[in-house]
């Protein structure tokens, strides 16, 4: 009784990844279509801009941490991920979770206004002025804009995210061949999907691994810079998971 398409193993994997992606994304896919998010008003933007740097960093660290927690849940639901050693699960998440968060951002990016959903409303890069890292914010918005223009489906984003996590090239893996096998299945599923939907052109337009890695490094550098300027704040007030991954 199952349609032909779903009986092919890579189609089954794609379906499974899509379900995991949908279950762990915020905003949910159904809220994306015809969204009615308001844009922050001038007064609201000024209020954010007037926040002390340490407070704004803490606020953003909390939002990033919530997103990371959803990515951890996504990973746990990926077929085969939990069968890896816990050592390797942690290596992959440490290296890839932030990349997935960054890619997921494009779902809630409004290209017309160059704004991203933040704390319930649409925010432009200027809202984050008090963070004191304009280049990082600009790079993140550039990435979101570029990805948004690709108009990726949820299936594409789910598989892209899975491939960012299940990356046998990450240093310190204990069982690299095992990760490579899982990566191979995901890679095939992605290519089959792209062929079926005539979206093979997408591959050449995706951000390079180097670009995502550079963006994550930029984030780490800014965390270090913030710690030098505001010693003790990260230890005292940032979410433990954020500290574990980035500090």
């Amino acid at each position: 009784a199952c349609p032909q398409a779903l009986r092919v193993p890579s189609e089954l994997l794609t379906q499974s990844v899509l379900l995991s992606h949908r279950a762990t994304c915020h905003p949910r896919a159904e809220d994306l279509q015809g969204h009615r998010w308001a844009t922050f008003s001038r007064e609201e933007i000024c209020a954010y801009q007037s926040q002390p740097t340490a407070e704004m960093w803490q606020r953003c660290a909390r939002r990033v941490t919530e997103a990371i927690e959803r990515v951890v849940e996504f990973a746990k639901r990926l077929r085969g991920f939990l069968e890896l050693s816990q050592h390797d699960q942690i290596v992959l998440l440490k290296a890839g979770a932030m990349e997935v968060v960054l890619v997921r951002m494009c779902r809630a990016f409004d290209a017309a206004t160059r704004t991203v959903l933040f704390e319930g409303k649409l925010a432009g890069p200027e809202l984050f002025r008090s963070l004191g890292c304009p280049e990082l914010v600009a790079s993140i918005f550039d990435l979101a804009q570029g990805l948004s223009a690709l108009r990726c489906s949820e299936s594409e984003l789910g598989l892209l995210s899975a491939l960012l996590l299940v990356n046998a090239g990450r240093p310190w893996l204990q069982d690299r061949p095992r990760v490579a096998r899982l990566q191979g299945h995901l890679d095939v599923a992605f290519r089959v999907l792209l062929r079926r939907t005539r979206r093979e052109g997408l591959l050449a337009r995706l951000p390079s691994p180097g670009r995502l890695r550079a963006l994550c490094s930029q984030h780490l550098e800014q965390v270090q810079a913030f710690r030098r300027l505001h010693p003790g704040v990260v230890s005292a007030a940032f979410p433990p998971l954020y500290r574990e991954l980035f500090a």
Partner: peptide, 14 residues
Amino acid sequence: KHRILHKLLQNGNS
């Protein structure tokens, strides 16, 4: 060293 990640990965519920 990665106490929180360990905990999240071991935690059974969604």
